[in-house]
Design a protein around this nucleic acid. Structure first.
Lengths: 218, 218
DNA sequence: GAAAATGGTTAAGAAATTGTTAAGATTTTG
DNA sequence: CAAAATCTTAACAATTTCTTAACCATTTTC
């Protein structure tokens, strides 16, 4: 679920952008002036900013200088080479001149967001996503809190996707992260993981192989 | 010293690109066909690829699919939206239509190379801002004094924004700034930082990941 | 089809980790 | 050197997680 901030004062452009992005399942935030954008930037963590240059309040160029760690795509009617070069050199990642094709905008947005997620280590399977560096599980893009042991178990199952892991092997694999885990508690943990996954989807993910162990359902 | 591979079969365009880049102190490598490009890619480690689409031998589109870890800027006479979208979605970082201004090309090259080197993030997150020189923290623009150790801890957490840092790793990271910090005192410091942040905002910023460590809340 | 074995769920208490506070030790500053 | 600031330690409280155990469901075996 990527969060995109739209900074644009022209209402009709702003609304059509907003609609377009929502159709693509982005979460949009709306600023109609430069100063409003700066306020939102203080409260939220965005994945991308779409930025008009000619804004009431703080100018787009000013915002580029203030923002450092969030990719910015400039959307501007200014077609001059100098404007482009200025923005790109002062920190913008891309510069698209109006009018533009929606498909191209979406593709260029994808490029920037791809860079973010590419650097992250993740285990993905259908609706499940395990973000290793933030130690979180996303089920249908929604955060689910797992305990240390639950996380370790699910990680091993996903690592050995579609392969059966015996209970003993599983216990062995997670033994670095947790001590004293027995077969008794393993089944409780599995049950708890299933319950947590079930809060956001009806699909079963952990399959029991009778007498042997568990695997991720194909 | 950045190494750029130019993949272009038109001799006059190729040569003028080569000259332009050399003037800017880039090291250029030259491929005049797709297959030649692939050969060079096997032997060398480039920082950037400038890629024409219509090539003898392997096509530009094919090369985009083969290359994964090197930023590609497509330079093409194809102006259609579909061509752009195709390239961008299949892995290119940028797409410039011919003819183009040299200055714009150079700026867009800078953007891609900047991403490589500019991995350090600014220490600003939502309502928090760390002023690196004066050892102060701004919470909602208000000054808060941090001690040396507190500053070091928060700095490491913000540098690894939204990523879990184990307690041991954290202690290791701050060991340059402070000696003898144990897990016992770490939790006291975290508690004190939280208390200080709380004087100006009700938002939680430092999250505990049970059994592992801490991270900045998303 | 009944008995035995395995798997699933639940709840409660045990165990481990984290949070808070205060006091004394240490370091820094004037 | 004394005062102030900072850091560490330790004790206790609060919280989260883990294990145990009982009970029920399902599958296998005989």
């Amino acid at each position: 679920m990527n969060k995109i901030l739209i900074v644009e004062d022209d209402l009709s452009i702003h609304n059509s952008l907003d609609e377009l992005l929502k159709q693509e399942n982005y979460i949009t935030y709306n600023a109609y002036s430069g100063s409003e954008a700066l306020l939102l930037l203080e409260k939220n963590n965005f994945d991308l900013i779409l930025l008009d240059l000619m804004l009431p309040g703080t100018s787009g160029e000013e915002i580029i200088k203030r923002v450092n760690d969030i990719p910015i795509i400039v959307l501007s009617a200014k077609v001059s080479c100098d404007d482009k070069v200025n923005c790109l050199l002062s920190g913008a990642r891309d510069y698209i001149t109006k009018p533009f094709r929606n498909k191209e905008l979406l593709a260029r947005i994808e490029v920037q967001l791809r860079l973010k997620t590419n650097s992250k280590q993740l285990l993905k399977y259908k609706e499940l996503e395990l973000l290793d560096d933030s130690h979180t599980l996303l089920v249908c893009q929604k955060k689910v809190n797992l305990t240390k042991t639950e996380y370790a178990i699910l990680k091993q199952l996903l690592l050995n996707n579609n392969q059966v892991i015996s209970k003993n092997k599983l216990l062995d694999l997670i033994s670095e992260d947790t001590l004293d885990c027995s077969e008794f508690s393993l089944k409780v943990h599995i049950s708890n993981i299933r319950k947590k996954i079930k809060t956001y989807t009806n699909n079963e993910y952990i399959e029991s192989i009778w007498g042997i162990g568990f695997k991720i359902k194909d």
